[in-house]
Design a protein around this nucleic acid. Structure first.
Lengths: 109, 109
DNA sequence: TGGACATATATCTGTTCGGGTATACCTAGC
DNA sequence: GCTAGGTATACCCGAACAGATATATGTCCA
């Protein structure tokens, strides 16, 4: 499990990231905000941390988590390659022409 | 399974999408380009289609698949909320200040 | 040192998921 | 209709995974 998209695949992990968007949060805070059990939160935070999506700063008996952008950025960059497909003014035909039509195995109209 | 990120979580599906970036492709083409078995390709294409990430255009006995941007765009937009976290010139402190520091459960320094 | 608070891990369990093989379906051409 | 090409589905299997419960670890405070 080192794949960003695999990390983002789980809704509970995305909820954690959404809560962390506002800034550094303790585990207890995240439990309150996500309505997940504490062990679940800790478990998912562990996965997020191991994969490098969040970082941990111990503060007394609290563990403060925050977002590290690097991996999220990688995901964003991967998706950026597909921007043509949703940008206005570009039909599917336009796209094909723009990047050179690939060989078509079958054609019919 | 209707979640974009869950769709993107599987590497084989991402490979299919990468092959489709060049334009419309038949199943056979995708089999060649991805080194997956034909049933696997069909299976993943089915998932991609059901979720709305690709669309199908029958052409004789060939099935031509192409990318539909809408869902990929949703994923991209979700990620866009996190741009602050990887943009230069913004430390973690800056982010906190920028969006108003959240309550800190524990503090120590 | 003992106890409460905060977080992490261990273990179990039901489910989901992807790949493989075999097979069914559909279309074109004869 | 028969055959071949192209694609989809059925079924089985093993692995991965998320949630829950119980328990361990660590820290503060008296």
């Amino acid at each position: 499990m080192a794949d960003v998209f695999q990390i983002l695949a789980d809704p509970s992990r995305r909820h954690l990231l959404e809560a962390l968007r506002e800034g550094e949060r303790s585990v207890g805070d995240l439990v309150d905000r996500t309505h997940m059990s504490q062990p679940s939160v800790s478990k998912q935070l562990r996965i997020l941390r191991d994969s490098g999506v969040v970082s941990l700063r111990p503060a007394g008996r609290h563990h403060l988590y925050s977002i590290r952008g690097r991996l999220l950025r990688e995901a964003s960059e991967w998706l950026a390659y597909y921007e043509h497909f949703w940008q206005e003014g570009l039909s599917r035909m336009d796209e094909a022409l723009q990047r050179g039509s690939p060989p078509r195995p079958g054609r019919k109209g």
